[in-house]
Simulated assay, not measured.
Amino acid sequence: MLEKSFAMDFVPDIVSVTKVVEGLCKAGRVTEAAEVLDRVECMGASLDVVAYNTLIKGFCGVGKVKVGIHFLKQMESRGSLPNVDTYNILISGFCYSGMLDLALDLFNDMKTDGIRWNFATFDTIIRGLCSKGRIDEGFSILELMEESKEGSGGHISPYNSIIYGLFKQNRFDEAVEFLTKLGKMFPRAVDRSMTIFEHCKQGSIDDAKRVYDQMIDEGGVPSILVYDCLVHRLSENSCVREAVELMNEMIANNCFPVPSTFNAIIAGFCRQEKVESALKFMEDITARECETNAETYGPLINVTCKKGDLQKALQLFLEMVEKGIIPNYFIWNSLLLNLSQENYFKNKNMINIHDLL
């Protein structure tokens, strides 16, 4: 329809054109989307900030954030001034791509250009910094947010990002202490979290899940501490499928799992001797670029050895070594004990274990 319009020298209004651009961007066809806007402009129509923002978001969505910067400069040169949404989209893109210094440069440029930071700006950059381990800078931005006119706006998400950053660095006690200090600001969220921890500690997983469901029904956003605690207890209580579902909810809330979280699920599958489920789950988390470690492979190698599938155990062992993961005592013990019992050392077609030793 758009091509027919162009053929008749008719340019649809910018709202209709933007809808087409949005559809193309969602389908990953960002180059075509850029061509559409270029043709519209060549036909004498003016583009507004919403159209540019839609295109910039499209390029950020496919990881081409620097192309988004090109269109930012283009819109400025053509008299269409960027707004806070333009910067937020680009900051989010840089954070997602791991280019945090460029995200911080844009954050500072906003102040220079007279564009006021809003909650989305703070929330995005705090999450980006903390997820990559730059906790101190995350705290600094959090202080700026609290000093600003808008503040947190009653949203707990930037504080959960701080907790997530501390947790990823194994600063568990600091994370719990920080959560506790939020009691005055978010009394209901903190109370629900502490209740869940207590139920999990006592082994009352059904009660813990009930409080979690209540928290979600009230519109609460759990922290990584709540998710991690529940995933561990569900996995230990043979509710591994529920643990997987909970981890998926966690990811949907921009809270990506740390190794200890998904390792608990793999260990849970292995205790039930559901090797295929454990392997499929490991494939899924690897596809999501989650970093595995020795504790990921240990239960898998152990259970495959117990089931007599030593070929699979050796395959997992080699895969692990190729990734540069150092086997721990548990892995060596499982593998060597079973290989020696099966007399595999004499089989020239198998891996030469004493060379690896």
Rank of each mutant, 00 (worst) to 15 (best):
L234A: 06
E283F: 01
F269S: 05
R210Y: 08
F172D: 12
L179K: 06
T261Y: 01
Q169L: 08
I265D: 01
V244E: 13
A264P: 10
S277W: 05
I285H: 03
A287V: 10
T195K: 13
S277R: 04
G183F: 03
T261Q: 07
H199M: 07
P187I: 07
A264G: 07
A278Y: 06
G219C: 09
N263K: 03
G183R: 13
V211Q: 00
L246N: 04
K274I: 08
T180I: 02
E177V: 00
R188W: 06
F281N: 04
I285E: 00
T195R: 12
L279Y: 10
S260D: 15
Q169S: 11
K274Q: 13
Q272D: 14
D191I: 02
S193K: 00
V221R: 11
V240Q: 05
R241Y: 12
H199W: 08
N248C: 08
V258W: 04
M250N: 08
A175M: 02
E276P: 03
I224P: 00
F186G: 04
L179G: 01
F269N: 07
F281R: 03
N263F: 03
P187F: 03
S238A: 12
I266N: 10
Y227D: 03
H232G: 02
H232E: 08
M247E: 15
G268V: 02
L279G: 13
P259R: 06
T286Y: 02
A264H: 06
E283N: 14
A243D: 08
G268C: 08
Q214N: 15
I265F: 05
S204L: 12
E245C: 04
I216L: 15
F172M: 09
Q169T: 02
